[in-house]
Structure formats: structure tokens, C-alpha cells
Amino acid sequence: MRSIIPVLTVVAAIMALWYAAAVPMNAPWAYDVAKRADIELTFTDLVAATWSQDKPKLPAPHQVGVELWETTVQKNITSKRSLVYHAWITLSATLLGFGMGTVLGIMLAVGIVYNRVMDMSVMPWVIASQTIPILALAPMIIVVLNAVGISGLLPKAVISMYLSFFPVVVGMVKGLRSPEVMQLDQMHTWNASASQTFWKLRLPASMPYLFTSLKVAMAASLVGAIVGELPTGAISGLGARLLAGSYYGQTIQIWSALVMAAALAAVMVALIGLIQRIVLKRMGMAT
């Protein structure tokens, strides 16, 4: 709690910087307009002009705020111009991809922990798969899946899945191996079968690791869904808003989509954090 004041100070400083930066960045356009209208700009006029342009280079925070308010609260949720609608499109792809990635990651991790050959052959490739810029594959995945007749949600979800399975694999492998030799021996003395050891010792022990990696996976998954919307010229979703905004120079629209994406990421990660707290508390593992 003691960090609230410093955090607020930093946020306020960022806001001030943002407003300050908007003046010089938008000034050329403001001067241009003034010149054509033959008006001499005073400093206050200039500042007012730079903070209220239609297509500014850098929109001021309050402009983004107004745009956000207009496109979320004042629009019908089902309307194509509502940011909530676009956010939902992206979020559904994110969640589907996140779910698939988590399942795939857990399955791979179980295989890796229980099978030595898989550990030695698959694990290096799992790590290598993340050093290649997978987002470069995104356009191809989408086009190829489209050609096979799969379109809409799934191609985006596949990209999200690819980005999100890795943290889960790494975290779960660590987690499933986290029981100590002593604890494993204890299971032996109780004559526990392999599946009992898994369900009653390894899986519960891995939970803290799982939740930590789920948070990373969720953030990665959202990035995947947004980038997945770029190359196909999708017409809905936050990525599509970014793309359309950059085509038509609608900077305010871009910024509001960005803020929306940030809020989505924050809410989803916070939600996982909440579930983590509840689950760990009920398991008696809360710290």
C-alpha cells in the first residue's frame, strides 16, 4: 500500500509528459491551419489547438478518454462502431486460444515429466520454438486455414495458442517436478500407484507454478489474437481497429483501441490472480 503515492506520482508525471509532448507534435498542423486562416497564434491558442485536433499526431489523453466514452458507453453493444463489440471479438479468440494453449501445455508437460525420451527430444524444441518470431507466421496460418475452409475465430485462436502454450509447459514441468524426493518416497511407502501420485501429490504441488504461467500466457494470448487480426484485413476486433485507424489516419481511434487492449489484458490477468488466491487459499497453500 505504501507504493500508492509513488505510483500515482509516476502516472501523473506520465500524463503531464503526454500533454506536454502533444503540443510540439501537433504544432505544425496547428500553424498550418492558422496560416491559411491568416491568424496569429498566441501560446494559449496554440495549446488549445494542439489538444483538440481531429486527426492529431498525438492525441491528448482527454481526447482518447472522450472517444473511449463515446464508443463504449454511448454506443449500443451490438453496433459495429462499439468498442465493446470489437473487444469481445478479440477477447473470444484470446480465450479460445488461451484455453487450447493451456490444455496443450499441460499435456506436453505431463508427457515430458513422465517420459524421458519425450523430455530429451521435445523440450529443446519447445524452447527453440519461442526464439523464432512466431508472429511472423501469423499471416500464413490465417491464409492457409482460410484456404482449408476454416475461418473466423479459430485461426486467430491458433496463433494465441502457439504463443500461450510455452509458458504453461515450462511452468508445469517445473511445478510437476517440484515435489521433493522425501514426499515422493512417502507416496511410495503408502504404496501409491503412479496415477495416485500424480493426482494427489504432483498436480496439487504444481498449482502455484501453473497460475504464475497462466498470467504470462494470458498476456501473450491477447497479443496473438490482436496480431492475428492484422494481416487478413479483418473487419472486426481490436487489431482491425488498429489497422483501419492506421489506414485512415484516425489516431484517436488507434489510441482508444490500445487503451482497450491494455484494459483487457489488465482485467484478465487480475482475474487469474483472483482465482489463484481463492484456489490456493482453499488448498491451504496461500502465502
Binding site: S3, K57, L243, A262
Partner: peptide, 26 residues
């Protein structure tokens, strides 16, 4: 600054920053 910037930095590090691309290209 540590107390103030670290939470903000951690938050920003989790955001989909690639979205900044169209703005920076502009």
C-alpha cells in the same frame, strides 16, 4: 522512483505493446 516506476513498468511489460506499431509508423 523505484516504488513508483516498478509497478507501472511491470504493468506496461504485460501490455500488448505491438499495438503501438501503427502509431510509431505514422
Amino acid at each position: 522512483l523505484q516504488l513508483g516506476l516498478l509497478p507501472v513498468g511491470n504493468f506496461v511489460a504485460a501490455l500488448p505493446i505491438v499495438g503501438m506499431a501503427p502509431i510509431l509508423v505514422m
